[in-house]
């Protein structure tokens, strides 16, 4: 979990936009997928802080920003992200105790 403070010095000329996202859920994790065309790995910041996931990214002309509320069942230490072709994928694994488990029944 990182708790870095994000720099607030954004030039006024940049337009702040919400990236479009998909939020998917499986038995073991949540998956956040965001369209961030023109965003380079170095210009992207993901912060997890107090149950909030904050996304900040910059391109030459735009400032992408959006934050998401995280449930208690997300394992914050195991969050992983990948950026490819301008699409960001954030994997948010569920805590072991929150995962659905099949209980075997003895006959």
């Amino acid at each position: 979990m990182s708790t870095q403070t994000s720099p607030q010095s954004t030039p006024a000329s940049k337009t702040v936009v919400h990236p479009l996202v998909d939020v998917l859920e499986s038995d073991s994790e949540f998956l956040l997928v965001a369209d961030l065309p023109g965003v380079n790995k170095d210009a992207l910041g993901i912060t997890v802080n107090g149950g909030q996931l904050e996304l900040e990214a910059e391109t030459e002309t735009l400032d992408y920003r959006r934050s998401f509320a995280l449930g208690d069942d997300v394992d914050l230490d195991a969050v992983e992200a990948k950026l490819e072709f301008g699409v960001l994928e954030v994997h948010l694994p569920k805590r072991a105790e929150a995962q659905v488990r099949k209980v075997p029944i003895k006959g």
């Binding site: 479009l20 996202v21 998909d22 939020v23 998917l24 859920e25 499986s26 038995d27 949540f30 998956l31 997928v33 965001a34 369209d35």
Partner: peptide, 16 residues
């Protein structure tokens, strides 16, 4: 094309 990967259910879909 955007498809929901196998084993996942969509909670929110904005990316078209």
């Amino acid at each position: 094309e955007t498809a929901v990967p196998e084993g996942y259910t969509a909670l929110r879909r904005e990316r078209g």
